[in-house]
Design a protein around this nucleic acid. Structure first.
Length: 803
RNA sequence: GCCGGAGUGGUGGAAUGGUAUACACGCACGACUCAAAAUCGUGUCUCGCAAGGGAUGAGGGUUCGAGUCCCUCCUCCGGCACCA
């Protein structure tokens, strides 16, 4: 036996696994399936970081364990390859994004392969490849044909300097300033452009309800529910005095409706023009609206923004009371929520502040609790006054239902549910994405491109530099292609799709990645889906997961798949921080490169260290100092092989530790409690070190348990024991129940709940036996009371004397 | 502001309501060595010579027994936030 040479060993087995296609998966009729998936990475030029390693190592351990437990495991990897960094780089250097992206992918793949991850590389996909985005385009057409995709006006963030559209995340500067172009710092404006939307709002209720059926972190479910923001309330109709116009408001707190004294419209509300046309207020209101529209939604949704408004000169009649409400326009009313018109009262801090600023009269329907502040309606508590037929009633659910019924029966309004969730705007005025498969006839009507023309290729003769329209508009080839196929005067759509579209269905493609006639065959989908374990960072909890769920539900609705939730079980790996406890960042120079670590200590050590650092989902600081512990652990496992001897026997105590290790590591892997699994294996090897000789079978059991964590080293040691087949094809060892527990246990002896000492007893001793032993014990015999009022006995754990 | 999560040794962290501090890092001392490294051994929450006390962010409560359950508060982290 030589020393543990990780470089030689890891290289050798990586090559062997690759040559023998060790992890290529084919469907099996005899084994149950398991689909373990990592969120596929964006192949950044910066390469793999420690956070990737953490998640990938965890799912790899899980996958290897499941294989040993008799499952047929699908464990694929691919690339979320479209996106902005490659395009920005292209703008700077005029290098085609495909070139830089493929280079980054090669680098990423190399880095990932060095970690000994058991991916089935025959299923590798990249969203930027035509044989993949063909099906992204198919998906678009599927939604279009079924009324779930439509083109309409939408707001975009626009940088006047760069002449380009920006995604929301590109409107925050590096220093954290909001509402500016990330590239040039220019204040961004909003423009109305005709945009494609996916109607995710059609599925709002299912997206909330079906969260009950999946095993996801509770906080992630809550984030999803909050994002959808379902709210039930009541729409009240108001006639505008002196006009043939009525205004509908949305209220989520119907019990407080009698307190309202004024109405506010969003500046962009279409009724604004009607209200002021030809009146004295017209000029001022128009100026106000114009000024407000220059402010971006990002600024508008900043809670600290000064509330501003203007009176229209009009009043509306409250159908509930007949009172007249002045009609205002104000920047805090959002066209996006409810009806874009609000009834306002003193019971809302924002409405109250606004009314005070402009001297609008107020009234209250619940007695104040403190003299200087009206009660907040959000509490939904109190006794009503001045509330018509409901005066004197206490606010509770029954009363709210009664008020709603009263409003409906009198024809004043009706109930309505609103959602915060908006339709998904998928148009991007950018180059490096999947082209939207649409052409426009000479009248400008949109037509889906017939499927025989898919993939609708991304043109290459484009100007990357932004010029105010989408880069695809500069392609001669695209225009010629369109006219050649569809006729003179036809024009191609020149926007591309949000990259979230590409990543919203990739988990389906892995089931059947080379299928040329379907996005995946029905059999393949039935075999593998849904995903049994999905692992990824918590930063994608809202958007990616929501979109993937939406696409799944849409496909289910039209019979393409048979399940409604794509990811049965979801877990997040926590962020790995730099040694100083701050985020790793290139600019701070505190980034740990996994390559250097695995070069120095080995991939097996890196995997074990990252699992041992702490709970998978926790945020943890990196510590280069601590890695040595994981390395030493593997070296001990290596060295212990010297003690292996055919026909030896293990001491009962060491054997119990081994049996416990087999049991506990299996349980911990199932729970993804990998830090405690590693610590149990350390306990096991520590126990082995104290033995003179170790039976071959015992050592083999320990290697099998360690195999998912340290695949290279265990493979080498397995071979050294004379095995000719891979350790990774072996079954998980079975523990011996009869040897699991030691015969003697140390039990705590308490008086009044305080520990006074411990006593060694035979396992399973009865209360009488233990009391007898305690009385005979020289030290404890004196401490415990002679006549306790009672004793509490927990077998093998605690004996508590209550004086 | 709202919704989550978390506060345990010098450090990362462990603990079905049942011996708090497992496992590891670091540190100290010892063995081996001419020496060092590596390795091995011993010790390492705190006060105390000891016997004994006291400690899981703070304070209360439930319980024979609380890091764990309940209440009040503090701090940190994450997400959402003019949502009617």
């Amino acid at each position: 036996m030589g020393s543990y040479d990780h470089k030689k060993i890891e290289k050798k087995w990586r090559k062997h696994w690759e040559e023998t296609n060790a992890y290529v998966t084919t469907p099996s009729s005899s084994k149950p399936k398991h689909y373990a998936l990592d969120m596929f990475p964006y192949p950044s030029a910066l390469g793999l970081h420690t956070g990737h390693v953490e998640g990938y190592a965890a799912t790899d351990i899980y996958s290897r364990f499941k294989r040993m437990k008799g499952f047929n495991v699908l464990h694929p990897m691919g690339w979320d390859a479209f996106g902005l960094p490659a395009e920005n780089y292209a703008i700077k250097t005029n290098t085609p994004p495909r070139e830089t992206t493929n280079k980054a992918i090669d680098n990423f793949r190399n880095q990932i392969q060095r970690l000994g991850l058991s991916y089935d590389w025959s299923r590798e996909i990249g969203t930027h490849n035509p044989d993949y985005y063909k099906w992204t385009q198919w998906l678009f057409l599927f939604l279009f044909e079924n009324g779930l995709a439509e083109k309409r006006m939408g707001k975009v963030n626009w940088c006047p300097t760069d002449q380009t559209v920006l995604a929301n995340e590109q409107t925050v500067s590096e220093s954290g300033e909001k509402g500016v172009c990330v590239r040039c710092g220019t204040k961004i404006i909003q423009r109305e452009l005709s945009q494609w939307f996916f109607k995710i709002t059609d599925f709002a209720d299912a997206l909330i309800d079906d969260l009950n059926d999946v095993d996801w972190p509770e906080s992630t479910k809550i984030n999803q529910r909050n994002w959808i923001g379902k709210k039930e309330g009541v729409i009240v109709t108001h006639k505008v005095k002196g006009m043939d116009l009525s205004l509908d408001t949305f209220s989520a707190y119907p019990a407080w409706l009698f307190a309202d004294t004024y109405i506010v419209l969003a500046p962009e509300h279409p009724a604004v023009k009607n209200l002021v046309e030809g009146t004295e207020a017209e000029i001022d209101v128009e100026a106000f609206v114009k000024r407000m529209q220059e402010v971006t939604t990002i600024d508008r949704t900043n809670a600290t923004m000064e509330k501003e408004g203007i009176f229209t000169g009009r009043v509306a009649v409250d159908s509930l009371t007949g009172k007249e409400f002045p009609i205002w326009i104000a920047n805090f009313a959002l066209m996006d929520f409810g009806t874009g018109i609000i009834r306002c009262s003193s019971h809302d801090i924002r409405d109250l502040t606004f009314a005070k600023k402009y001297g609008i009269p107020l009234s209250e329907v619940v007695e104040r609790e403190s003299p200087d502040m009206p009660v907040d309606a959000h509490a939904n508590k109190g006794v009503l006054k001045d509330s018509g037929p409901f005066t004197g009633r206490t606010i509770n659910n029954e009363l709210i239902q009664e008020i709603i019924a009263w409003i409906e029966s009198n024809g004043y309004g009706h109930t309505q549910t609103t959602y915060r969730l908006r339709d998904w705007l998928i148009s991007r005025q950018r180059y490096w994405g999947a082209p939207i498969p649409v052409v426009y006839d000479p009248e400008g009507k949109a037509h889906g491109i017939p499927k025989e023309h898919l993939p609708w290729l991304l043109p290459e003769d484009v100007e990357y530099l932004p010029k105010g329209t989408s880069p695809l508009g500069t392609s001669k080839e695209l225009l010629e292609r369109t006219e050649k196929i569809f006729g003179k005067g036809w024009k191609p759509e020149i926007d591309t799709m949000d990259t979230f579209v590409c990543s919203s269905w990739y988990f389906l493609r892995f089931a059947d990645p080379h299928n040329e006639i379907e996005f995946a065959s029905k059999e393949a989908l039935k075999t593998w889906l849904p995903v049994d374990l999905y692992m990824g960072g918590a930063e994608h909890t809202v958007l990616h997961l929501m979109y993937a769920r939406f696409i799944t539900k849409a496909l289910q609705k039209f019979g393409y798949i048979e399940f409604g939730e794509p990811f049965s079980k979801l877990r997040h790996q926590g962020m790995i921080l730099a040694e100083d406890g701050t985020k790793m960042s290139k600019s701070k120079g505190n980034v740990i490169n996994p390559d250097e670590i695995s070069e120095l200590y080995g991939a097996d050590t890196l995997r074990i260290y990252e699992m041992f650092m702490g709970p998978l989902e926790a945020m943890k600081p990196w510590s280069t100092k601590n890695i040595i512990g994981s390395r030493r652990f593997l070296e001990r496992v290596w060295r212990v092989q010297e003690k292996v001897s055919q026909g030896a026997t293990l001491s009962a105590s060491a054997d119990a530790t081994l049996q416990q290790t087999i049991k506990k590591v299996a349980e911990d892997i199932e729970l993804l409690s990998l830090n405690t699994a590693v610590s149990q294996m350390m306990i096991c090897v520590n126990a082995f070190e104290k033995e003179e000789k170790i039976p071959t079978e015992s050592y083999e059991s320990m290697l099998l348990v360690l195999a998912p964590f340290a695949p290279h080293m265990t493979e080498e040691l397995w071979g050294a024991l004379g095995h000719t087949s891979s350790i990774h094809q072996e079954n998980w060892p079975v523990f011996d129940e009869s040897k699991l527990e030691k015969n003697e246990v140390v039990m705590a002896v308490q008086v009044g709940g305080k520990v006074k000492g411990t006593i060694v007893i035979p396992r399973g001793a009865t209360e009488e036996e233990v009391v007898g032993l305690v009385r005979k014990d020289i030290k404890l015999g004196e401490v415990v009371p002679q006549n306790p009022s009672r004793t509490i006995f927990v077998p093998n754990r605690v004996l508590n004397f209550i004086p």
